[in-house]
Simulated assay, not measured.
Amino acid sequence: MTGELDVDTAPHIRQALVEAMAGQEQVTIDLRRLGFCDCAGLSALIAARNTARHHGTTLTFRRRFLWRDRSLNRA
C-alpha cells in the first residue's frame, strides 16, 4: 500500500483485501510505503486480520512503524 489509509480510503481497501484473500493460503500486506493511517485504516487492517483468521489464511504485515505492529497484535 502507498499513500494514506484513512476514513476516505479504508472502505475500498477493506473490500480489496477481502477480495485478495479469497481462496488464498497466504497474503502479505506491505505497509512500508504507507504514509498515514488513522483509526479507520487501522480498523480495516484489523478486519482483514480477522477475515484471514476466519478463512484459515495466513496474513502477514510488512511494516515500517512499530506502533502498527503493537496496535494490530493488541486488537
Results as ranks from 00 to 15, higher is better:
10 A>Q: 11
72 L>W: 04
10 A>G: 13
60 T>H: 09
72 L>D: 11
30 D>N: 12
10 A>F: 09
48 A>C: 01
10 A>I: 12
46 I>Q: 02
60 T>F: 03
22 A>N: 04
58 T>R: 10
54 H>K: 13
19 E>D: 15
2 T>C: 06
73 N>Q: 13
31 L>D: 06
24 Q>R: 14
67 W>C: 10
57 T>M: 05
11 P>T: 11
36 F>M: 05
48 A>K: 00
33 R>M: 07
68 R>A: 13
39 C>I: 12
19 E>K: 11
20 A>P: 00
18 V>I: 14
47 A>D: 10
60 T>I: 15
59 L>F: 06
62 R>N: 08
7 V>L: 13
26 Q>Y: 06
13 I>D: 01
50 N>G: 09
40 A>T: 02
35 G>R: 03
56 G>M: 06
9 T>H: 08
19 E>S: 15
72 L>Y: 05
15 Q>G: 08
59 L>V: 05
27 V>G: 04
5 L>N: 08
51 T>C: 08
36 F>N: 01
51 T>Y: 09
53 R>T: 12
74 R>W: 11
25 E>M: 02
13 I>A: 15
3 G>N: 04
41 G>L: 04
64 R>G: 04
65 F>K: 09
68 R>E: 14
40 A>K: 01
33 R>E: 15
73 N>F: 02
10 A>P: 05
24 Q>M: 10
53 R>H: 05
5 L>M: 08
11 P>G: 09
55 H>C: 11
30 D>K: 00
32 R>P: 07
30 D>G: 03
30 D>V: 02
10 A>Y: 08
49 R>I: 00
36 F>Y: 14
64 R>I: 03
52 A>I: 04
40 A>Q: 04
31 L>W: 01
7 V>R: 12
57 T>D: 07
50 N>L: 11
54 H>A: 15
25 E>K: 07
43 S>H: 08
17 L>K: 02
40 A>F: 04
26 Q>K: 11
15 Q>N: 13
21 M>E: 04
61 F>E: 09
35 G>L: 05
13 I>L: 14
33 R>H: 10
12 H>F: 14
43 S>R: 08
6 D>A: 07
9 T>M: 10
10 A>H: 07
48 A>F: 01
37 C>D: 06
49 R>F: 01
55 H>P: 00
58 T>F: 05
75 A>D: 08
36 F>A: 06
35 G>A: 12
73 N>A: 13
57 T>C: 15
41 G>M: 05
1 M>G: 15
51 T>I: 00
25 E>T: 07
66 L>F: 06
73 N>T: 11
10 A>K: 08
26 Q>P: 01
13 I>Q: 07
7 V>P: 00
29 I>S: 07
2 T>L: 12
73 N>M: 11
69 D>H: 09
72 L>G: 07
66 L>R: 12
18 V>D: 03
68 R>N: 11
18 V>K: 05
10 A>N: 11
74 R>G: 04
34 L>R: 00
70 R>H: 13
2 T>H: 11
41 G>H: 03
17 L>S: 05
57 T>Q: 06
32 R>W: 00
41 G>D: 06
10 A>D: 09
44 A>M: 02
13 I>C: 12
18 V>P: 00
63 R>T: 12
12 H>A: 15
55 H>V: 09
50 N>D: 15
3 G>H: 06
62 R>I: 09
74 R>Y: 08
24 Q>H: 08
47 A>W: 00
64 R>C: 05
11 P>M: 10
72 L>K: 04
57 T>A: 07
75 A>R: 03
